[in-house]
Simulated assay, not measured.
Amino acid sequence: MGKKRLLRLFVAVLSLVMVIGACGGSDEEADGSPSELSLLTGGTGGTYFPLGGELATIIQDETDIENANAESTGASVENMQILQDGEGDIAFTQTDIAAYATKGELMFEDGKMDNIQAIGTLYPETIQIVTLMESGISSVADLKGKKVSVGAPSSGTYANAEQVLEIHGIAMEGIDAQHLAFDELTEGIQEGTIDAAFITSGTPTGALEGLSAIKPVKILPIEDNKISELVEKYPYYAEETIKSGTYGLESDVKTVAVLAMLVARSNLDEDYVYQMTKAIFDNSNKITHAKGEFITADTALEGVGIDLHPGAKKYFDEKGIE
C-alpha cells in the first residue's frame, strides 16, 4: 500500500474515532445543557439536602428535564469547587462563600472560581451557636477555652465562626476547635465530648431539632453592639432572630445570618437556566419545607453579590425585578 493511501486510511480512522467519541462519554448536550441535572446540596442533617430534593422535583415536573438529582455534598465551599471543575450543574451555597470564590479570597486564595454565576438568593442562613441548657455557657465570651465545633477547616461555617469570635475578641486559638459534621456535633454535645457548636443553616435545622428532642438546648445570643460591629466589617451579614418555640426555646434569640443562594455553572445554556429559574420561583408555593416561605422572586436578587447567569437575568427582567 502506498504512502498516500496509508495517510488517507489513517485520516479516515481518526475521523471515525472522533465521531464516536463525540457521540458518547459525556452527559452534556452540544448546546451546553446537561442531559441530567445535578443539584449539589449539603449534608443530610442540614437544610440544603431536603430542600434541594424538593427543588429537584419541581424542576423535573415543570421543565423538560427528565432526571433531576439532589446530591449530598460537603456544602458551600465544596460545591463551588465541584462547579468550577464542571462536575455539577447548579448548587446551594452561602452568599459570603460565593463572593469569596469569585474574588479568590480566604479559602479560595489559590485561585478565583470563574465558572460560577448566580441564579438567586433563597432564605436566611442563620449562625446558630448551640449548647446544652445544663452547660453553664450563656454567652459567646464564655466559649473561650471550651471545646467548640466550628465546621470543617476552610468551610463556610468555619469562616462564620472565626468572624463572630473575632468580634468578641477571641482568636480561633482561644478555643479548643473541633471540626465535626452535623450528626457528629449533635452527638458530641449530647454526650458531653464538646461544649458547643457553630452551625450555619436555615432554621429549624433537622439535626438540632433531633438534639432538642433529647436534651434542652440553648442558642447563644449575639449582643446588638457586636452585631453592628460584625455587619460593619462584613457587610454580607444581617441581623436575624430565632423565634421562641424553635428547638423548645422559651424566648427569641438575636443572632446574625448570611443568605443561602443557588448558583450555576456559567457555561450552562441560557434557556436551560431560564427554565430552571422560572420553575423554582414560579412554583415556590409548592415547597413544603419551612424555608419555602422565604423563597420568592421578589427578594431573590437581594444580597446576591456576584454576577447573575444570563438565563436567570432573563427571568428576572421579565418579572421587572432588578
Rank of each mutant, 00 (worst) to 15 (best):
F10T: 11
T193G: 05
A290Q: 14
I59S: 01
A181M: 13
L7W: 09
K226P: 00
Q190N: 13
A207G: 04
T296I: 06
F49A: 05
D195S: 10
I280D: 03
A312P: 01
A177I: 06
I90R: 00
G156F: 02
L106F: 14
I189A: 00
P153Y: 11
E62P: 05
S228P: 01
P310S: 07
G188A: 12
K254R: 15
S35N: 14
A161S: 10
H289T: 03
F10I: 15
D114A: 11
A152F: 12
T41Q: 05
A196S: 13
A98S: 07
T205V: 14
A260I: 01
G192S: 08
V150N: 00
V150L: 00
A22V: 08
N225I: 13
S212E: 06
I58F: 03
G192R: 07
A75D: 12
K146L: 09
S15N: 08
N79P: 04
L9F: 10
D176N: 14
L259Y: 12
E62Q: 15
L39M: 11
T131G: 07
P153T: 13
I65C: 01
E66F: 06
L259W: 07
V256P: 00
D195P: 05
M172Q: 11
T246W: 00
L220W: 01
G86N: 08
E66W: 04
G21M: 11
L230Q: 00
A238S: 15
G145M: 07
S15V: 15
I58G: 00
G86F: 10
T203F: 00
I137F: 03
E191T: 15
A171I: 04
L230M: 09
I58Y: 02
L208Q: 03
S138I: 09
I82H: 08
V77K: 03
A196V: 08
L39G: 01
M107D: 08
G303C: 05
T47V: 15
E105M: 14
G305Y: 03
G52F: 02
K291T: 13
E105N: 11
I175E: 00
T44G: 11
E62S: 12
Q178P: 01
I242L: 02
T299R: 11
E109M: 13
G192N: 10
G248Y: 04
T205L: 02
G88F: 03
S149C: 06
Q117W: 02
T299V: 11
K215M: 12
A279P: 09
N267L: 05
L7Q: 12
T41S: 10
L185K: 10
E66L: 14
Y272Q: 06
E125R: 07
E293M: 13
I116K: 00
V217M: 03
T193M: 11
G248P: 04
T95A: 10
D64T: 13
M172S: 04
F316V: 02
V19T: 12
I222G: 00
S26T: 15
I65W: 04
G156I: 05
G248S: 07
E62K: 15
Y48C: 10
A177R: 05
I170H: 03
D61Q: 15
F10S: 12
N67Y: 12
T255I: 04
Q190P: 00
A118L: 05
